[in-house]
Design a protein around this nucleic acid. Structure first.
Lengths: 207, 207
DNA sequence: TTCAATACATACCAACTAGTCTGTTTAATT
DNA sequence: AATTAAACAGACTAGTTGGTATGTATTGAA
């Protein structure tokens, strides 16, 4: 009964996201979203009770896809479980490949929200931190696997090293966007890969 | 003649900056600034013709201090010019020390502006990119100095390696702020330092 | 074919927005 | 003491904001 609202809903999400990357969240008015989508106010507030509800839906979809990509890269590199370092390196390489050849700088919703935190409710912000913690958990495991067979040339804190991946993602996004050139994320992920490659040395079996 | 406006001017800049880190630029209203400073509208618009003028003044002051810090670190490590690698490492260490023991996550105006770019005029945004390019130039020189006496264990692009420092700064800011814990910048700068340390090997004098 | 729920359209509103205008206070100068 | 420019105070405005109220169109089910 009633017509299908899915296309409208999806259109709002897609165009809103694009607008957020140009104007930020407070800087994006609902009227602007209506203009870009060709949708009316009635339709918008039918799908989203408030502007905050849109923000929440946006971050949920975004984080879901993010974790999806992460898990896909995990899956793709599962065949390398034998050599944990090779697996870690290839895991990063998956994202190098993914981000290579992007013409425009990539923008991230986490940073968008993080730099105007008062605009969002606790739950929405927590969703971001929890997604980053999911990344931390995954990277920690990958690193721990490496440490079974490898030592580090320099003493490191595992959690901090685990976070370093997201740090480089987010930093590369900001710098690429600020410089308004091509996206530099792939380049900087390569440095992360280099770091991992240089940091670990295979344990000497003392026999 | 007339009273001294400097304290008022400075107060507006200081409180505005703090508000921007909470609400973003569009999310910060002039009325909010007036509340926080206890200043009136007349005073505000006496010092700043428009809200955009405030944005420009803010970024100019911020970038100036940023480059100042950079140059101070350069100066402090000048005594190590003899060993360029040691100098590079100590240069990073200066910022590790600077960012250590921060209780609150540090926020950066570059990222604030970069994630709502449509709110600022070309000149203001260019100021950011040019400041980042100043960092690039400085880091490039430090790295080139190292390459006089050192090879890299892995082939690298100098410009990209130069940018990596700002990338890690910005990324650490975003992640620290998103996780709402303590500031993690010092930790991640240490990883950068590790990377430099591992990447370079002294050239073998073939005699 | 009627029904009813979904999906949308549009006029409207109170609150807030950046910015203006006119006037007043302050304090060094003459 | 009078002057003058800088520094500020506060009422006002035109436009925009998120959100609402009420009505209409669409569509499958009965």
């Amino acid at each position: 009964m009633g017509r299908d609202g899915k296309p409208t809903y999806d259109k709002i999400l897609a165009e809103s996201k694009a607008l957020l990357f140009e104007n930020g969240f407070s800087g994006t008015s609902i009227d602007q979203i209506l203009q870009r989508t060709g949708i009316t106010k009635g339709a918008f507030f039918y799908h989203f009770k408030t502007k905050s509800a849109l923000a929440k839906a946006l971050i949920e979809e975004y984080a879901k896809e993010d974790i999806l990509h992460m898990n896909e890269a995990l899956k793709k590199t599962k065949y390398l479980e034998g050599d944990a370092l090779e697996r870690l390196l290839q895991f990063i390489q998956e994202f190098v490949d993914m981000m290579s050849g992007l013409s425009e700088p990539y923008s991230c919703l986490y940073a968008t929200y993080t730099y105007e935190p008062s605009q969002f409710d606790e739950e929405t912000l927590r969703h971001i931190s929890e997604t980053i913690l999911t990344w931390r958990k995954t990277m920690e495991q990958l690193i721990r696997d490496v440490l079974q067979d490898y030592d580090t040339k320099i003493e490191i804190d595992i959690q901090s090293l685990a976070d370093h991946t997201v740090v480089i993602f987010e930093g590369a996004f900001v710098v690429s966007k600020a410089l308004k050139g091509r996206d530099l994320t792939a380049d900087h992920l390569k440095h992360l890969k280099n770091y991992f490659q240089l940091l670990f040395v295979r344990k000497t079996t003392e026999d």
